[in-house]
Amino acid sequence: MKPTRILVSLATLAGLVIASPHVTSDANITQPVPAESEAAASYISAADIIEYGQPNRLALQSGVAMIVDDREGVMLYGRNIERQRPIASLTKLMTALVILESGLSLDEPVKVTREDRDRLRGTKSRLGFNGVFTRHDLLYAALGASDNRAAAALARTYPGGEDAMFRAMNAKAQQLGMTQTRFVDSSGLHNGNVSTANDLVRLVNETHKHELIQTMTTTPSFRVTDRNTGRQVAFRNTNRLVHRHSWDIALSKTGYTAAAGNCLIMQTTIAERPLTIVLLNSWGKLSRYGDARRIQQWLEKAERRVPPIVTASASTT
């Protein structure tokens, strides 16, 4: 093995962020996901993707972007990852995390009231006033369909009410090391809900520990039941990529307000490489999905650019 290859391998094993000209190296990435020995034998390292893939040429339309190789804990690409921005409905991941960790019964019926309506932006909901839904179904509507009324009802019925809920959300953010993150509501309608791409990677890693959140954020369509009337309410996932068989998505959340722009965070696998992708402030209605596709194409091409001798050397390391 050449000496340069030894240095790269040691850096990778240490979980360091190896930077290219457009990759910010000060990201605080959490511990990498351990790789199975057989998969690792043929796995192209993140260092090689950065070296041969030329991420500086990746042209994305999102103002903030971050791509992390979850297996190694290495950032493959970063743009403005410490820029604090409104995060819109990405907020709902923290809402769900706090609810699940509170120990509240998910089977408990919760009545939706006029207190839960969106007074800030006037968004609509398929959940009618006086409808009764389990906390589980409200979580589903909030995560999968990004329903703001569902998120408001979850916060209102949290022990101690909304203020206690917001304190719990901020306390959890601090616990996770999300130092640039603040929450002032449970839905993300308020522009005071802010974070950074680097902080959001921490949130995604934490929510990924909950299989229920994985399921609720990636199910293409689902129904919830009004316990008062027995009527079922149909929803579709707001992330159009989960409706496509060409994408392997383990967790996702969309968001949009005028201040936040279009936002998308996902844990997905591309070319057998598990990734966390954060896209913020994408102004075109479809540009966040276009960016996701550009990332997919870039990574597939990057792996093909790695010389066979490098891949073979990595296999015998």
Rank of each mutant, 00 (worst) to 15 (best):
R5Y: 07
L203I: 15
N170Y: 11
Q296V: 01
A39C: 01
E82G: 05
S45H: 11
G192R: 06
S125N: 09
L251T: 14
L279W: 02
R79G: 10
R57Y: 03
A145S: 10
G290I: 13
M266A: 10
D137S: 01
D147Q: 07
E211I: 12
H190P: 02
A197R: 12
T254C: 11
G188P: 03
I270M: 06
A292C: 09
G284A: 11
S221V: 09
L279D: 01
A153H: 00
D248H: 15
R223K: 15
T134S: 03
A35D: 09
A141H: 05
R293D: 10
L154E: 04
K285P: 08
D118Y: 04
P86C: 03
R135A: 01
T269K: 06
K111S: 10
I309V: 15
S62P: 04
L7G: 09
A39L: 12
G161W: 14
A145G: 05
V201E: 09
W247D: 05
T4R: 11
L241H: 07
M169P: 00
L127R: 04
Q297H: 11
A164N: 06
S9T: 09
E72R: 14
R288Q: 14
H208A: 12
S102I: 08
L241T: 15
G73C: 07
D137Y: 01
P109A: 14
R202Q: 14
